[in-house]
Design a protein around this nucleic acid. Structure first.
Lengths: 334, 334
DNA sequence: ATGAAAGCGCTAACAC
DNA sequence: GTGTTAGCGCTTTCAT
């Protein structure tokens, strides 16, 4: 391993001179000559600054943690990608954490041990962030995704209400009126907001859906299956359904097929979330694209801002706005 | 921040006593009494060992880097999950890196700066690991996924030949003979091995497919599309096709639909790789499940072994073996 | 413009 | 059994 001292020796200068040049500190009042010698010596030797030493000294790691409940969710990949690229462009790297349940302890440890400067946390659906209570007294730079704890930690969220509204409006435009809503778990923040959007769109059309038209089973494929099963058992079958999540929508499709219900002929389906996979189901899903990539970016930007300036914010991602992607799972009411 | 010194003061002992107890070193000859005092003091104060300090001292981070070309590939999620869980159970954490092209420099830096103890690298399809040449002279603990550079870095690979063989045999069992093979890019290690398996299965059945029956376009959805387009242009249309990758298989499905070719009635499709998504295409894909999760685990285990014992290995994952998952995209030849 | 020196928090000899 | 001490490689006053 090549150290500053090695470079200093070779360049015939002091360690501090080398440090100043190589970390080009603002007060780098160094003559062009020595700077050159130092730079050359450093490259000759293949010098690399030691991360741990620097971190120990400055008490900053330039690493942000990303904690999610489930790495295997395909929705997560775009988020991850956005987070990674934003981190990279800010000179940070991402440390991956996983916490099935809201594991405040694990998060505390990450920051407490000084492994990361801050953390982006996605709590799992339906888990209220209250469990994160003990986090706020440690003034840990945390940013919550799709959840919030105003004033205590920062947060970033989609414009979920708008997303659901766009999906619902599309169905309305196609002439549907009996539009059901397959939602996530009731405690979930996103579910609440999507519900609001659905209801608002319906209200705008002068419609007030019955309670039974909304299921609140969750965001997994199986939840979607169960939701449709329940919805199709209703005395007044819906002609269309807004599904609050792609994964659940795949379940809806599966269940429809299972029951011999044709999509979109017998039932139109629109989901909130778009993902790589939505284009390849059969029929391809008409979906409202939520900006996951941007979400990842924004979240990382928010933690870094919090770390560097202390500012805390609760952001809603308004751009790019939720966008309808018309494929083949929704058709005009016949 | 609570340091060892703080704990020592509160417990009324020396720093080293505290260090010994809290990092329970094997030679921890400490009386039960002091041990207790120390433990209590530590919890009272909420002591957390400082990561950077320890890393600086022992020159080990207990972090392994995971470098992949594309975070958004859904195939990658299982790998990631496996890697994460193995790392966690070995007391390591994962640092995420991305390198579109084989970016030896980026990898060097990760290790050179002492950010990670070792790295798992998945080079992108079709990129020969030769580009990683300069890595070997730094004796960086590296493990390559689905590629190899024998004797210079370690590697972990699927039993790709077997995977392709299982897929091909299934089609053969269904009575097909004109079986085409939509493969990855010719330079890709996995493509070579899968090709071998395909050919072997065909040979066992006394068949020698013509050259035109194999495309080598790549592993993306569009590549799959293009592959099928080409295959269906052949004078003797294949009745079945083995696709070397799920993503490409989704392209094959899309193209078939586009051309009005019914799957499986007119064309049977089996792919190597299974993924969450394969079950939800239409028709659901019959696939050979490759153990991505285990791949992630094995790769991490291999780097850690390399780091801790210096051993280097080229592993092929034989268990769980590639397993045929029968869904609906392949049917008997009619 | 450059150098000397004091630590950051920790571990591991080495004393006692 | 327990304490003292010397660094790990770096940044950063403070001298010069």
């Amino acid at each position: 391993m090549v150290t500053l001292a090695d470079v200093a020796t070779r360049a015939g200068v002091s360690i501090s001179a080398v440090s100043r040049v190589l970390s080009d500190s603002p007060s780098a009042r160094v003559s062009a000559a020595t700077r050159d010698k130092i730079l050359r010596a450093a490259t000759d030797l293949g010098y690399r600054p030691n991360f741990a030493a620097r971190a120990l000294k400055v008490a900053r790691t330039k690493v942000v943690g990303l904690v999610v409940p489930d790495l295997t969710n395909p929705l997560f990949t775009d988020l991850l990608d956005g987070a990674e690229s934003e981190a990279a462009s800010l000179g940070y790297t991402l440390l991956l954490g996983r916490a099935g349940e809201v594991d405040a302890e694990a998060i505390q440890r990450l920051v407490g041990e000084g492994r990361v400067d801050g953390v982006v946390v996605q709590v799992s659906d339906g888990v209220p962030p209250a469990g994160l209570g003990l986090l706020h007294d440690a003034r840990t730079p945390i940013v919550l995704i799709n959840s919030s704890l105003p004033g205590e930690v920062g947060s970033v969220a989609f414009d979920d209400a708008l997303g659901a509204r766009v999906a619902t409006s599309h169905l309305l435009d196609l002439g549907h009126q009996r539009i059901a809503f397959a939602n996530g778990l009731p405690r979930s923040f996103t579910a609440k907001r999507r519900r609001r959007g659905y209801l608002a769109a319906m209200a705008d059309a002068g419609l007030v859906p019955g309670r039974t038209y909304e299921t609140r089973l969750g965001y997994t494929v199986d939840d979607g299956r169960a939701a449709l099963a329940r919805l199709l058992d209703l005395p007044e079958r819906p002609t269309a359904v807004v599904v609050a999540n792609v994964n659940a929508a795949m379940g809806v499709l599966a269940q429809a097929r299972h029951l011999g219900v044709r999509v979109p002929e017998d039932l139109s389906v629109v989901c909130v979330h778009d993902a790589w996979t939505a284009a390849h189901t059969w029929p391809p899903l008409t979906a409202v694209r939520m900006p996951f990539h941007e979400m990842g970016r924004t979240a990382v930007r928010a933690v870094v801002r919090r770390v560097e300036t202390g500012e805390m914010s609760d952001d809603v991602i308004s751009s790019p706005a939720p966008q309808l992607v018309v494929r083949e799972s929704a058709a005009p009411l016949s």
